[in-house]
Design a protein around this nucleic acid. Structure first.
Lengths: 222, 222
DNA sequence: TTCCTTCTGGACCTTGCGGTCCACTTTACC
DNA sequence: GGTAAAGTGGACCGCAAGGTCCAGAAGGAA
């Protein structure tokens, strides 16, 4: 078996080459988080990763655009994996709250340096490829949430009359909106409020189903 | 009385000057909506507004940064005024739905060319002045929504136990999140879903108050 | 060892764009 | 109508930053 690794048609990478390529991606990723995509220059990347211009263009012939796209894909993968294991097992309210806490804590820590936010807002609008990548990420994310909602509906904790996909969409919007506000003001209040509010709706919808009805305790938002 | 208009200390504008200044702002605003702030060059502005470099720097000595800040302020004003008269009279569910329709329709029309989104995401992160402007806009917006929630609480349509400010915050997040998704995918589904979901929660919370209790009809989300 | 491919370093080119300068015109007030 | 301030046009500058090129080093298969 060949020790060289095939990247795509016609492109071979040695172990050393693959390492360099990865180093460039991760260095760029860090740079983008700190300064934004537009403000990140190839010279910054070159300095940070101890490489040279020729290497960047060797591994990313499309130049800066191709590099940023690779970084976006790299980050997109992390967005979902960072929410595990909670995201894949939203089968109890405890799991949902753990997920909520994970999301809030992650973005609170990242603050302005949210990788996805940066890439979505700076790349998504111009590059069709980046836009497709974003759309695909959101779809996968939403599908996980939809599955979680459906699971809760099955055990009677969420009103079966609700549209699971639409509900998942509004959860996505809650997160994205909270992050948007966080990015522009530095405060995570909206993120928490939006998630809590939406989760409260889901909880109370379950309580309202006939067989489990026990009204009176109107979901305390604190 | 002087025909010249005082702008700030030491700066006088004739009617002609004021008109030119305004033309520059509006032209830049349009350019930014179409291409983004970073991609908008002073030459674009110059061509579009039939002016010259010297005029831009005459009216905005701080260069591009000052110009964009002026545009941001101009747009921020429009964001709220575009939601009138609904935003200031959220005293019935009809008013709330009219407001919701106005927001959805506006952003659906604007699509990728959302002025606030562009400015928040491209300027907010770097310029402290722009960030302050954004924060202030969100605060004013949230205060209007908070007042609306409080009004509905007073007439028993929303659970008085809810934190009005926190609820308003989650509505803000719903809008911002929907817009964020719209910006990166071109679809307004999330915006609608998030607003509808949140409004449903508020409605059902009112229904749950003791004196108005008539359970069974679990808020149909369609 | 030999030969081919991949990898690396860095000088160099090109261009786009923010910003400057200065001469000239128009407006406003006396 | 004179004069000073405000408004206007456009040539020009400097530099940052993306991108090119080529010579040479390192690595792998025979």
């Amino acid at each position: 078996m060949d020790r060289k690794v095939q990247k795509e048609v016609g492109a071979m990478l040695t172990a050393k080459g693959a390492a360099t390529r990865q180093r460039i991606i991760e260095g760029t990723s860090a740079e983008v988080r700190e300064r934004g995509a537009a403000a990140t220059t190839l010279d910054d990347v070159r300095a940070r990763t101890s490489t040279s211009k020729s290497q960047i263009f060797h591994y990313f012939p499309g130049g800066k655009e191709e590099l940023l796209l690779a970084v976006a894909a790299y980050e997109a993968e992390r967005v979902l994996s960072d929410q595990e294991p909670f995201l894949s097992a939203l089968t109890s309210w405890e799991a949902w709250h753990n997920w909520r806490d994970r999301v809030v804590e992650r973005y609170r820590t990242l603050g302005v340096h949210c990788p996805l936010g940066v890439l979505i807002t700076e790349l998504g609008r111009k590059t069709p490829a980046a836009q497709a990548l974003t759309a695909q990420l959101l779809e996968r994310w939403q599908e996980r949430l939809r599955a979680g909602v459906a699971a809760m509906q099955r055990i009677g904790e969420i009103d079966p009359g609700l549209d699971a996909d639409r509900t998942a969409a509004s959860l996505i919007a809650a997160v994205q909106g909270g992050v948007a506000v966080l990015l522009s003001t530095g405060r995570a209040d909206h993120l928490e409020a939006a998630l809590d509010t939406t989760l409260d709706l889901l909880k109370s919808s379950g309580r309202r189903t006939p067989e489990l009805l026990h009204v009176g305790a109107s979901g305390d938002p604190t």
